[in-house]
Amino acid sequence: MEAIIKKRIKQVIKGDQDAFGEIIEIYKNSVYQLCYRMLGNRHEAEDMAQETFIRAYVNIKSFNQDRKFSTWLFRIATNLCIDRIRKKKPDYYLDAEVAGTEGLTMYSQLSSETQLPEKELESLELQETVQKEILKLPEKYRSAIILKYIEDLSLNEISEILDLPIGTVKTRIHRGREALRQQLRYV
Protein backbone atom coordinates (compact mmCIF):
# COMPACT_ATOMS: atom_id res chain seq x y z
CA MET A 1 0.00 0.00 0.00
CA GLU A 2 2.65 2.52 1.04
CA ALA A 3 4.69 1.49 -1.99
CA ILE A 4 1.81 2.24 -4.34
CA ILE A 5 1.29 5.63 -2.70
CA LYS A 6 4.98 6.45 -3.10
CA LYS A 7 4.86 5.58 -6.77
CA ARG A 8 1.73 7.66 -7.30
CA ILE A 9 3.29 10.62 -5.49
CA LYS A 10 6.29 10.52 -7.82
CA GLN A 11 3.87 10.61 -10.76
CA VAL A 12 1.97 13.49 -9.21
CA ILE A 13 5.21 15.45 -8.79
CA LYS A 14 5.72 15.05 -12.52
CA GLY A 15 2.28 16.61 -12.91
CA ASP A 16 0.13 13.52 -13.47
CA GLN A 17 -3.38 14.27 -12.21
CA ASP A 18 -4.72 10.79 -12.86
CA ALA A 19 -2.26 9.47 -10.30
CA PHE A 20 -3.54 12.08 -7.87
CA GLY A 21 -7.07 10.87 -8.57
CA GLU A 22 -6.03 7.45 -7.32
CA ILE A 23 -4.63 8.99 -4.16
CA ILE A 24 -7.89 10.84 -3.58
CA GLU A 25 -9.84 7.62 -4.03
CA ILE A 26 -7.75 5.94 -1.34
CA TYR A 27 -8.06 8.70 1.26
CA LYS A 28 -11.29 10.51 0.46
CA ASN A 29 -13.43 8.67 3.00
CA SER A 30 -11.10 9.10 5.94
CA VAL A 31 -10.38 12.75 5.12
CA TYR A 32 -14.08 13.52 4.65
CA GLN A 33 -14.93 11.69 7.83
CA LEU A 34 -12.30 13.61 9.78
CA CYS A 35 -13.67 16.93 8.47
CA TYR A 36 -17.28 15.96 9.10
CA ARG A 37 -16.63 14.85 12.67
CA MET A 38 -14.68 18.04 13.32
CA LEU A 39 -17.24 20.40 11.77
CA GLY A 40 -20.55 18.56 11.98
CA ASN A 41 -21.82 19.92 8.67
CA ARG A 42 -21.75 18.10 5.37
CA HIS A 43 -21.20 21.13 3.17
CA GLU A 44 -18.38 22.47 5.24
CA ALA A 45 -16.89 19.01 5.55
CA GLU A 46 -16.89 18.50 1.80
CA ASP A 47 -15.42 21.96 1.29
CA MET A 48 -12.61 21.33 3.73
CA ALA A 49 -11.96 17.81 2.45
CA GLN A 50 -11.68 19.13 -1.12
CA GLU A 51 -9.45 21.94 0.06
CA THR A 52 -7.25 19.39 1.84
CA PHE A 53 -6.59 17.50 -1.38
CA ILE A 54 -6.07 20.65 -3.40
CA ARG A 55 -3.49 21.91 -0.91
CA ALA A 56 -1.82 18.52 -0.89
CA TYR A 57 -1.61 18.61 -4.68
CA VAL A 58 -0.26 22.13 -4.86
CA ASN A 59 2.30 21.53 -2.10
CA ILE A 60 3.18 17.94 -3.00
CA LYS A 61 6.83 18.91 -3.57
CA SER A 62 7.19 19.93 0.06
CA PHE A 63 6.02 16.49 1.23
CA ASN A 64 8.89 14.48 2.69
CA GLN A 65 8.62 11.16 0.89
CA ASP A 66 10.28 9.27 3.74
CA ARG A 67 7.27 10.05 5.90
CA LYS A 68 3.83 8.55 5.85
CA PHE A 69 1.61 10.34 3.36
CA SER A 70 -1.58 9.92 5.38
CA THR A 71 0.01 11.69 8.36
CA TRP A 72 0.82 14.69 6.19
CA LEU A 73 -2.64 14.66 4.63
CA PHE A 74 -4.44 14.43 8.00
CA ARG A 75 -2.30 17.27 9.25
CA ILE A 76 -3.47 19.51 6.43
CA ALA A 77 -7.08 18.47 7.04
CA THR A 78 -6.94 18.98 10.81
CA ASN A 79 -5.36 22.42 10.48
CA LEU A 80 -7.92 23.49 7.90
CA CYS A 81 -10.78 22.35 10.12
CA ILE A 82 -9.39 24.02 13.22
CA ASP A 83 -8.92 27.27 11.27
CA ARG A 84 -12.46 26.94 10.07
CA ILE A 85 -13.85 26.43 13.57
CA ARG A 86 -11.87 29.40 14.89
CA LYS A 87 -13.15 31.85 12.36
CA LYS A 88 -16.60 30.40 12.27
CA LYS A 89 -18.39 33.62 11.70
CA PRO A 90 -21.42 34.02 9.49
CA ASP A 91 -20.80 31.50 6.76
CA TYR A 92 -24.20 30.18 5.98
CA TYR A 93 -25.17 27.84 3.26
CA LEU A 94 -28.60 28.42 1.82
CA ASP A 95 -29.29 24.71 1.73
CA ALA A 96 -27.56 23.87 4.98
CA GLU A 97 -29.19 21.21 7.06
CA VAL A 98 -31.12 22.48 10.02
CA ALA A 99 -29.75 21.04 13.23
CA GLY A 100 -31.44 17.80 14.08
CA THR A 101 -32.32 16.82 10.52
CA GLU A 102 -28.98 15.12 9.97
CA GLY A 103 -30.50 11.78 10.87
CA LEU A 104 -33.25 12.27 8.31
CA THR A 105 -30.80 12.68 5.46
CA MET A 106 -28.82 9.69 6.59
CA TYR A 107 -32.04 7.80 6.97
CA SER A 108 -33.20 8.61 3.46
CA GLN A 109 -29.83 7.64 2.05
CA LEU A 110 -29.82 4.32 3.78
CA SER A 111 -33.44 3.47 3.24
CA SER A 112 -33.37 3.75 -0.53
CA GLU A 113 -33.26 -0.04 -0.82
CA THR A 114 -35.09 -1.39 2.17
CA GLN A 115 -36.97 -0.01 5.08
CA LEU A 116 -34.86 0.30 8.14
CA PRO A 117 -35.60 -2.05 10.98
CA GLU A 118 -36.16 -0.35 14.29
CA LYS A 119 -32.79 -1.47 15.53
CA GLU A 120 -30.93 0.40 12.79
CA LEU A 121 -33.03 3.47 13.24
CA GLU A 122 -32.05 3.43 16.88
CA SER A 123 -28.42 3.12 15.92
CA LEU A 124 -28.81 6.15 13.66
CA GLU A 125 -30.18 8.12 16.54
CA LEU A 126 -27.28 6.96 18.63
CA GLN A 127 -24.83 8.05 15.95
CA GLU A 128 -26.38 11.47 15.95
CA THR A 129 -26.12 11.75 19.69
CA VAL A 130 -22.49 10.70 19.65
CA GLN A 131 -21.69 13.15 16.85
CA LYS A 132 -23.32 15.97 18.83
CA GLU A 133 -21.29 15.12 21.91
CA ILE A 134 -18.08 15.08 19.89
CA LEU A 135 -18.94 18.52 18.55
CA LYS A 136 -19.40 19.79 22.08
CA LEU A 137 -15.80 18.94 22.94
CA PRO A 138 -13.33 21.83 22.84
CA GLU A 139 -11.55 21.61 19.47
CA LYS A 140 -8.23 20.48 20.96
CA TYR A 141 -9.81 17.46 22.61
CA ARG A 142 -12.07 16.90 19.64
CA SER A 143 -9.25 16.51 17.11
CA ALA A 144 -7.33 14.13 19.38
CA ILE A 145 -10.41 11.96 20.04
CA ILE A 146 -11.40 11.83 16.36
CA LEU A 147 -7.90 10.90 15.23
CA LYS A 148 -7.65 8.26 17.93
CA TYR A 149 -11.05 6.58 17.81
CA ILE A 150 -12.54 7.40 14.43
CA GLU A 151 -9.41 7.38 12.29
CA ASP A 152 -7.93 4.68 14.54
CA LEU A 153 -4.43 6.18 14.59
CA SER A 154 -1.60 5.53 17.02
CA LEU A 155 -0.56 8.09 19.62
CA ASN A 156 2.67 8.58 17.68
CA GLU A 157 0.87 9.45 14.49
CA ILE A 158 -1.51 11.77 16.31
CA SER A 159 1.40 13.56 17.91
CA GLU A 160 2.91 14.07 14.45
CA ILE A 161 -0.36 15.24 12.92
CA LEU A 162 -1.07 17.71 15.69
CA ASP A 163 2.60 18.64 16.05
CA LEU A 164 2.43 18.09 19.80
CA PRO A 165 4.46 16.01 22.25
CA ILE A 166 2.97 12.59 22.97
CA GLY A 167 2.33 13.58 26.59
CA THR A 168 0.12 16.46 25.50
CA VAL A 169 -1.76 14.21 23.09
CA LYS A 170 -2.40 11.73 25.89
CA THR A 171 -3.69 14.44 28.21
CA ARG A 172 -6.06 15.68 25.52
CA ILE A 173 -7.36 12.20 24.84
CA HIS A 174 -7.84 11.57 28.57
CA ARG A 175 -9.79 14.80 29.02
CA GLY A 176 -11.79 14.11 25.90
CA ARG A 177 -12.64 10.62 27.11
CA GLU A 178 -13.69 11.95 30.49
CA ALA A 179 -15.94 14.59 28.92
CA LEU A 180 -17.54 12.03 26.63
CA ARG A 181 -18.10 9.69 29.55
CA GLN A 182 -19.96 12.40 31.42
CA GLN A 183 -22.20 13.05 28.42
CA LEU A 184 -22.76 9.54 27.17
CA ARG A 185 -23.07 7.63 30.43
CA TYR A 186 -26.87 7.57 30.41
CA VAL A 187 -27.29 6.86 26.71
Binding site: G21, Y32, Q50, V130, E151, R181, Q183
Partner: peptide, 23 residues
Protein backbone atom coordinates in the same frame (compact mmCIF):
# COMPACT_ATOMS: atom_id res chain seq x y z
CA UNK B 1 -18.80 2.41 26.59
CA UNK B 2 -18.23 5.94 25.34
CA UNK B 3 -15.17 4.78 23.37
CA UNK B 4 -17.23 2.03 21.81
CA UNK B 5 -19.89 4.60 20.87
CA UNK B 6 -17.38 6.89 19.25
CA UNK B 7 -15.81 4.01 17.35
CA UNK B 8 -19.21 2.85 16.17
CA UNK B 9 -19.83 5.97 14.09
CA UNK B 10 -16.66 5.68 12.06
CA UNK B 11 -18.13 4.60 8.75
CA UNK B 12 -18.88 7.77 6.90
CA UNK B 13 -18.27 7.87 3.15
CA UNK B 14 -17.25 10.82 1.04
CA UNK B 15 -20.03 12.34 -1.07
CA UNK B 16 -20.61 11.20 -4.63
CA UNK B 17 -18.28 12.54 -7.35
CA UNK B 18 -15.89 13.74 -4.68
CA UNK B 19 -12.77 12.78 -6.62
CA UNK B 20 -14.03 14.28 -9.87
CA UNK B 21 -14.93 17.50 -8.08
CA UNK B 22 -11.46 17.82 -6.61
CA UNK B 23 -9.75 17.00 -9.90
Amino acid sequence: KSIAYVKSISNLQAPEHFTANVL
